Simulated assay, not measured.
Amino acid sequence: MMGLAGSQGNGRKPLYKLIFLIALGGVLLLNPAAGRADLPDTVERIRPSIVAVGTYQAMRRPPSVFLGTGFVVADGRHVVTNAHVIPDKLDKRHRERLAVFVGRGRRVQVRGVTEAARDDVHDLVVLRMEGGDPLPALALSDARVREGQEVAFTGFPIGMVLGLYPVTHRGIVSAVSPMAIPTHSGRNLDPDMVQRLKNAFDVYQLDATAYPGNSGSPLYDPRTGRVIGVINKVLLTHGKEKVLERPSGITFAVPAQHVRALLRKAGLAAR
């Protein structure tokens, strides 16, 4: 009898486990976000991957000049930002160099960088960091982005005036639409707009406001932290908003698929 009772008890354990797994699966189906991180957890996780991009010149005052935001990708030694953030010329005579600024608050580390790959059509650039330990790299999403989807982006909207403090904004994808909107009159076309119409591609329009310092910030899923786009405040303003009499405060982002393609061009594997 003792042996029989023992057999029945052991048989119940797998059954209890099965019931628990079914119940857990039902909770996750009813609330898909239950197994994912909230935005505060996501921000804390991705913050070490956000860097400031600019130039550094030791004898200049101030020595650091902020130009935009970037984020770490691939092997932890590369940074993605907007191509327009990179200056056309550096004052090499006085040893000015392209750099990223890593850290938080007043504790900032300067790392020199060089261009690894560039995509002027989508206004993207990959920078290679010189020396130092690798930083945590952000993963790129390959999921379809839908209108109405919640998003967040983290960067430096006012630069490094008060130190290196990344700022997070959240919103939704208001629309997925072509970058360049055809004008009804040929008189409104200029060579720049004609070129953009030839190379038109879809971008994400957001209901959250970004500022010039946010150029190059990662746009990501607030639950997973996976990057779905790159904030851009110049290329797209010259495209979509050029048809407006007065430029609006609409924010746009370049889809992450173009980042993935640029990483392949640089011989790098995205996470």
Rank of each mutant, 00 (worst) to 15 (best):
A116E: 11
H84Q: 06
D142V: 03
G131H: 08
P157K: 11
G103P: 02
D75T: 15
E96V: 02
R170S: 15
D120V: 11
A175R: 13
G105Q: 11
G148E: 12
L164A: 10
D142H: 10
R97D: 04
V126G: 11
L124G: 07
A139D: 12
I158W: 13
L140F: 10
E147A: 08
V151S: 03
A137V: 10
P136V: 06
R128M: 07
V65C: 01
T183G: 12
H184K: 11
T183I: 08
G132C: 13
L67S: 13
G186V: 06
T81W: 04
P178F: 09
G163N: 12
H184F: 11
H84L: 05
R170Y: 08
D142F: 02
H122D: 06
E150P: 00
P182I: 12
P87R: 14
M129Y: 07
A143Q: 14
F156I: 04
K92Y: 09
A180L: 04
E147N: 03
D142G: 07
M160W: 10
P157L: 09
V85F: 10
E115P: 00
F66A: 15
F101T: 07
D75G: 10
K92N: 11
L164M: 13
K92T: 15
R107G: 01
A175Q: 05
G155I: 12
E96F: 03
G171Y: 03
V161Q: 15
D91C: 13
F66P: 13
N82Q: 02
V110C: 03
A74T: 09
H94A: 13
V80M: 12
L135A: 14
F156M: 05
E150N: 07
H184P: 00
K89C: 02
R146Y: 05
H84W: 05
E147F: 00
E150L: 03
G76E: 10
R144N: 04
L67T: 05
S185Q: 06
D75V: 07
D119Q: 05
S177G: 02
A143V: 02
R107L: 05
V145D: 07
D120L: 09
G68L: 05
D133I: 01
V65M: 07
H184G: 14
T168G: 10
H94K: 13
D142T: 13
V161L: 15
G163L: 10
T168L: 08
D119V: 03
L124M: 10
L162P: 01
G159S: 11
R97M: 11
R106E: 13
A99W: 03
V110P: 01
V151I: 15
H184Q: 12
V65A: 14
A143G: 03
L140T: 08
R170V: 02
H84V: 04
L140E: 09
E115W: 00
G70N: 08
G68M: 08
M129S: 07
S141N: 05
R128A: 15
E150H: 06
R104E: 15
A143M: 04
A83G: 05
V151E: 05
V100Y: 01
V173L: 07
P87K: 12
D123I: 01
M179V: 00
A117P: 01
G171P: 02
G131S: 11
E130D: 14
L90H: 08
